[in-house]
């Protein structure tokens, strides 16, 4: 669905609430809490196929140039700036995105590439792949949810999606229980606790 800037802003609270749910309830670790929300909005606006193609181009260009930039004696901020320029140039040159509002995806894509590369240098390829994969999967899940919820909410006054998003943020923000991923991480402990209670 092609969205007007007004509609994009109206859906933002919903995307943010979904991103928060994925972080606080499911426990997915992503590049920033809201990068998946921004990527999902982009996908909802420009089409999932175009955004997936842009991700491939941006990721390819970014990962090709990141190790070179890493060796240059320049500040981290300059490296990020160069990365944004390279990602933007690659996306423009290949023509994979042809929308009115491509500035946001450019910056988000560059940050995803930069953070993933940074994770790669610190924690290794496996951790970086997991982080990038989780971010994209989260963005995909939010995008799918937006395609279901979005059309319904966009028929209402903009206050409605804002109120729904705000309410969801407050409810999810108050969740104090174990995250779904922690049920797996601490499964042995939980099993032992249950056994102790039972005995």
């Amino acid at each position: 669905m092609q969205l007007t800037p007004h509609q994009l802003l109206a859906l933002l609270p919903i995307a943010i609430a979904l991103a928060l749910t994925l972080r606080l309830v499911v426990g997915l670790r992503t590049v920033g809490v809201f990068a998946p929300a921004l990527l999902a909005l982009t996908a909802a606006d420009l089409g999932a196929r175009d955004v997936a193609a842009a991700l491939l181009v941006a990721g390819g260009a970014g990962f090709a140039v990141a190790p070179v930039l890493d060796r240059l004696p320049i500040a981290r901020q300059a490296r990020l700036g160069t990365l944004v320029i390279v990602v933007a140039a690659a996306v423009v040159a290949t023509g994979v995105l042809d929308g009115d509002a491509v500035g946001l995806p450019m910056v988000v894509l560059a940050i995803v590439v930069e953070r993933t590369w940074s994770d790669h240098t610190v924690a290794g390829a496996r951790a970086a792949t997991r982080l990038c994969g989780t971010t994209l999967a989260s963005a995909g899940a939010i995008a799918v949810a937006l395609t279901w919820i979005g059309p319904v909410l966009l028929t209402e006054h903009w206050v409605v999606p804002s109120a729904v998003g705000l309410g969801a943020c407050l409810v999810v923000g108050g969740y104090r229980g174990l995250r779904v991923t922690e049920l797996v991480r601490f499964r042995r402990l939980l099993r032992a606790e249950r056994a102790a209670v039972a005995s």
């Binding site: 606080l24 426990g27 969740y175 104090r176 229980g177 174990l178 995250r179 922690e182 601490f186």
Partner: peptide, 9 residues
């Protein structure tokens, strides 16, 4: 204790 509960503490 999970991260959510830890963050409250």
């Amino acid at each position: 204790m999970g991260i959510n509960a830890r963050n409250v503490v």
